[in-house]
């Protein structure tokens, strides 16, 4: 399985993501620039955390106009896996692949700590190796992770089972304790916590690795089904 990590000017978790795939998951991975215009040959796209374009104007607002974005939208519409973490989640909401928006944490503090989460939906291609209701510890590191959507959108997220991860002790004011959501089709996941920083016990947790293993498992299952 071949992963692309899309690096923007100001991305700073791109190599964390790269090594999570290369060393922990031990699959093929390539770092590509957001100046590229194609994702041909890749089976999954990963948008890392950081401060793309300095987060000028708003987190993810300028990244929306990077060269790679039309290819990314096409990739997502072809039902291929797209994962956005932290700034990657912000970018996915800005380009409209995910609903809602991320605003300043309620406390106005930048929060960097290991955060307990609950796996609300384990029937996604990103979470199939977790148990439903499983509690996992994944680090967060953000100033603007306060997920907001209006009531109608929230009802839709709930009825479609698009809420994948929730915070056990809501750190940032997110509505409905939301830490991660998918699109309706379930192939695009955005989350503020960093699974790529939780892939080895020496990092404090390896419960993030399960997410990448789930993607791999779905991919192999899909291959078997097609063949």
């Amino acid at each position: 399985m071949k992963f692309a990590v899309i690096s923007f000017p100001g991305s700073n978790c791109d190599y964390d993501m790269y090594y999570a795939i290369k060393d922990a998951l031990q699959e093929e991975v390539e770092m590509i620039s957001c100046d590229e215009t194609s994702l041909d040959g890749f089976d999954a796209a990963l948008i890392p955390g950081g401060f793309s374009y300095g987060d000028y104007l708003r987190s993810g607002a300028i990244a929306k106009f990077a060269n790679i974005i039309p290819a990314l939208i096409e990739f997502a519409n072809a039902n291929k896996p797209v994962l956005g973490v932290c700034n990657g989640f912000q970018i996915l909401t800005e380009i409209g692949l995910l609903p809602g928006a991320l605003q300043h944490n309620k406390s106005m503090s930048f929060i960097s700590q290991i955060e307990p989460l609950t796996v609300v939906n384990n029937e996604t291609l990103f979470t199939n190796l977790y148990k439903k209701g499983q509690h996992i510890n994944i680090p967060i590191a953000h100033g603007e992770g306060n997920y907001y959507c209006d009531d109608a959108q929230l009802a839709e997220l709930k009825s479609n089972n698009q809420i994948v991860f929730t915070y056990d002790n809501n750190p940032n004011g997110s509505c409905a304790d939301i830490a991660g959501i998918t699109n309706q089709a379930g192939n695009v996941l955005g989350m503020m916590p960093h699974p790529e920083r939780a892939v080895e016990t020496i990092l404090g947790s390896e419960e993030g690795l399960t997410l990448f293993q789930s993607i791999l498992k779905s991919f192999k299952g899909e291959l078997n089904r097609v063949n």
Binding site: L57, A61, K64, P99, A101, Y148, C149, D150
Partner: peptide, 8 residues
């Protein structure tokens, strides 16, 4: 298209 995020 750019200056405002109309979600919020």
């Amino acid at each position: 298209s750019l200056l405002a995020n109309q979600n919020m």
